[in-house]
Computed example of a mutant assay.
Amino acid sequence: MQTRASLPVTPASPAPAPAAKAVAVRHRLRAMLSWLHLWVGLLAGTVFALVGLSGSVLVLHDDMLQWQHPQLAGHEPRADGAVLARIFDQWSPEGLGSVHLPEPDGVPTWQGYFGDGRRGYFDPATGDLLLMRSTDDDWLLWLHDFHIELLGGALGKELLGIVGWIAVGLLLTGLYLWWPKAGRLLAQLRMHRGPPVRRWLTWHRSSGVLLLPLLLLATLTGVGMIYHAGFRAVLTGAFGGDAMPTPPELALDADRPIDWSRVLALAGTALPDARLTRTGAPEPGSDVVSFRARNAGEWHPNGRSLVHVNRAGTRVLAVHDATGQRPGARMTEAIYPLHIGSVGGPAYRWATVAAGLLPAFLLVTGFLFWRRRRGKR
Rank of each mutant, 00 (worst) to 15 (best):
F369D: 06
F239Y: 07
G55R: 00
P14R: 12
A351V: 15
L235Y: 12
L368E: 02
T323C: 03
T277N: 01
I162V: 14
G174T: 09
P8I: 08
T246C: 14
A233R: 05
I340C: 06
L130A: 10
S342D: 05
G303A: 13
R292K: 14
R28L: 15
I148E: 04
Y227F: 11
W110T: 08
G324Y: 01
G208T: 04
T246D: 12
A360P: 01
L60I: 15
V107E: 06
G356L: 06
Y121K: 01
F291A: 01
R199C: 12
A267E: 02
F122T: 08
A187I: 10
L220Y: 05
P257I: 11
R118Q: 06
W260E: 03
H144Q: 14
H37G: 07
G174M: 07
L317G: 13
L159M: 10
G237A: 04
A293H: 06
V319C: 15
I148N: 02
R294L: 09
W35V: 15
R199P: 06
G174R: 10
G115M: 00
T246W: 12
A312D: 08
M244I: 06
L143W: 08
A233D: 10
R198C: 03
V364H: 10
A5N: 15
G169D: 13
Y113M: 04
L141M: 13
H147T: 12
R190L: 00
G285H: 13
R26G: 09
A296G: 02
L60A: 07
T10L: 13
P104G: 09
L151N: 05
E94T: 11
F369A: 11
R311D: 00
P346K: 00
P8D: 02
P245S: 01
L38S: 11
L357W: 08
A17P: 00
R205L: 12
V234R: 11
L60D: 06
F114A: 00
P247E: 04
T10W: 13
L72P: 00
P108W: 05
R330F: 15
A229V: 01
L58V: 12
W165T: 07
H300L: 05
M331T: 10
A251K: 14
H308D: 15
G161E: 02
G152Q: 01
L175P: 15
A267L: 10
S206K: 07
V168E: 04
Q90C: 14
L50W: 11
R118M: 01
T323I: 15
G117W: 00
L189T: 04
L235E: 12
L216F: 05
S207T: 14
A293K: 09
A17T: 13
L38C: 08
R278C: 09
A5I: 15
R372Y: 11
G174S: 10
G156H: 13
L72Q: 12
V59G: 02
E249M: 08
A17K: 06
R232F: 15
L159P: 12
P70V: 05
Q111N: 03
V57A: 13
G164M: 01
V25D: 14
L141Q: 08
A281K: 03
R304Q: 05
D253I: 05
V197P: 15
G183K: 02
H37Y: 01
E158D: 11
P248A: 13
W139C: 13
L185T: 09
D80E: 08
L215G: 14
G169K: 03
H339Y: 06
D253Y: 08
L130D: 15
L189R: 09
H100R: 13
L235T: 03
G95F: 03
D123Q: 04
S305P: 02
R349G: 05
V107N: 04
